[in-house]
């Protein structure tokens, strides 16, 4: 079993968390939507597997490269 971190590409706010821990994901599935500079930025699963952790909640502030979620496969 390998763990893969899903990181933020931007500094911004969490707008929506679409998937919860335990969900099965395919690469490209949108887990979280961030908001930065008036843009909505989808955060996608980097690999297929099980979403084991979602580390942020709506309204939370995130930084570039911050780990937002963890996928295990």
């Amino acid at each position: 079993m390998a763990k893969h971190n899903v990181e933020s590409e931007v500094t911004g706010n969490v707008w929506k968390v679409l998937l919860e821990a335990g969900a099965t994901v395919e690469a490209g599935d949108v887990i979280i939507i961030l908001e930065s500079m008036k843009m909505e930025i989808p955060v996608e699963a980097t690999v297929a597997g099980t979403l084991v952790e979602v580390l942020v909640a709506p309204e939370e502030q995130v930084e570039e490269d911050q780990v937002l979620a963890v996928i295990e496969n």
Partner: peptide, 12 residues
């Protein structure tokens, strides 16, 4: 714009 030219994500 302050953004990545490839991904077009905003850059702060």
């Amino acid at each position: 714009y302050a953004e990545d030219p490839e991904t077009q994500f905003p850059s702060t």
